[in-house]
Amino acid sequence: MSEQRSNLHGVLAEFATTEQLLAAAAKTREAGYTCLDAYAPFPVEGLADALGLRRPLVPLLTLLGGVLGGCAGFGLQYWASVINYPVNVGGRPLNSWPAFIPVTFELTILGASLFAVFGMLALNKLPQPHHAIFNVPRFALASHDRFFLCIEAGDPKFDRVRTAQFLESLQAYAVSEVLDE
């Protein structure tokens, strides 16, 4: 019994429209479930609110990347032109900062973009080739035209039978167990 439980990732319900998914997500949260995730073939408006997701950390990481990139860009030029290899050209200032702006700007953008993309991937824990949810045959439709809601086994209220019954009561098109083999 306990072995079976550890194999179980959760219970998955399938829906045909975004409205059904949003309603089901709201009802599931009302029923007290907290450990759940939804799957959709495109970003569904309002789904993050329905699931009570927090604001993503990506913007903060992007800011950090931009600041780091900008400082590195200016620092590189300052260090090379003023400290490491100063060249006196007719007494012109070594720290000719206006001429350093284009490279500083480009590296700010580069740093911010790299942090935005790789930060997003890291927070999403991608690449992750294997996930239990792929074991459900109909889940291939999550990248086509179907919407899924999964209540995970880690939820304190999770019960194999009652959770499945609850999801069926939400007019799900189909309900299936997600097994992690």
Partner: peptide
């Protein structure tokens, strides 16, 4: 391993919009 999770889409949209802004 993209699986269309709502959590992933949430961060994805944020990153995509930021990239557009950059």
């Amino acid at each position: 391993g993209w699986r269309g999770s709502a959590r992933h889409w949430h961060r994805y949209q944020s990153a995509y919009l930021l990239l557009a802004g950059l």
